[in-house]
Amino acid sequence: MSTKLEINFTRLLNRCETIASQRDTWDWRLEKYVEALQDQLGEMKRLSRQPSQPSQDIMLEYTRRVDFLKGLLAAEQKENISEKAYATERLAPVSNVHKGSGIAPKEVHLSAMTRLQKDMRTELLGEDKPGDGLRQRKHTDESDIDAVLKHHRKVHEKLTEELLHHTLNLKEFAYSASSIVKKDIKTLEDTNKVADRNQGDLQRESQRLESKTRGCSWWIWIMLALVTLTFLWMIILMRMFPARS
């Protein structure tokens, strides 16, 4: 069951979406209503743990709908019609609405875009007045062409700036990656040099140890032969000169 706070919130939200979809000029009431919506939404978030409060999905939907209205107000405060239309076009309205009988955010977005496009045509092409004559029509056409070219130039400049920004980011990322790869390659080369040097030292030490071991083995055999001959000679002497009884 919906609480009194949620009922008041949904009524005010539907009212704001209806005003945003039907208005042709700036309405100061909408800004005040959206501020009240933010306060009520914050209160519901503080009470979200209570069983009677809306679920997390519905609270997320409410938050997105309020953010969308805030985006419309922010776009309306831009300096010219082109910037207003560009900011409004970038807004992402809520696609699915679970509760409420107000205007769907997509319809509000479409209505705002239609109104801004109409304002852009009015600003670019102007209003035809009877009796102006061919000279005024020609001057108006030239002004329209200049305005259209100026608008397209601004859009092209914005796209160029964004593309340049992304290009610089990619270049910086590629430079960082290249520096890291170069450092890793240098570290690997130094490690290989150390390994080769250690392997050379190990081979030299092995050869020296082998040469010393070979020399020592000959001396061991000689000593064993001498000891054996000495032992045999002592036995012979003992046989030749037995002890006197």
Rank of each mutant, 00 (worst) to 15 (best):
E123V: 03
Q203G: 05
L188R: 08
K129G: 01
K32H: 06
W233G: 07
F241C: 05
R214C: 00
A147S: 14
L134V: 08
D57L: 06
S143V: 01
G200R: 11
R204S: 10
H152C: 07
K171A: 15
S2R: 07
G102M: 07
R90L: 14
R135P: 00
Q117T: 06
S82Q: 11
W218N: 05
Q207K: 12
L47V: 04
D39M: 06
H152E: 14
V148T: 15
A87S: 07
I7M: 14
D119T: 03
P93E: 04
V227P: 00
T88F: 00
T63P: 01
R29D: 14
Q203P: 01
L110H: 12
T25W: 01
L224C: 06
L209F: 07
S2W: 03
I222H: 02
M113Y: 04
G133S: 02
H151D: 06
G100V: 04
N192L: 15
D119R: 09
R64Q: 13
L5D: 08
L110Q: 15
R135I: 14
G102S: 10
A36K: 14
Q199A: 14
L12Y: 05
W233Q: 08
F9A: 00
H166I: 11
M238G: 04
T122I: 09
W221F: 12
R64N: 05
L164R: 11
R65D: 02
R239Y: 08
I81K: 01
G200H: 08
A147T: 06
I220F: 13
E61W: 01
R208P: 01
N14E: 15
L37M: 05
E107G: 03
L149N: 09
M113C: 02
G102K: 01
H152M: 15
S82V: 15
R135C: 06
T213A: 12
K193E: 15
W221V: 14
L164C: 04
L60I: 02
S211T: 10
L37F: 09
R15H: 12
C16W: 00
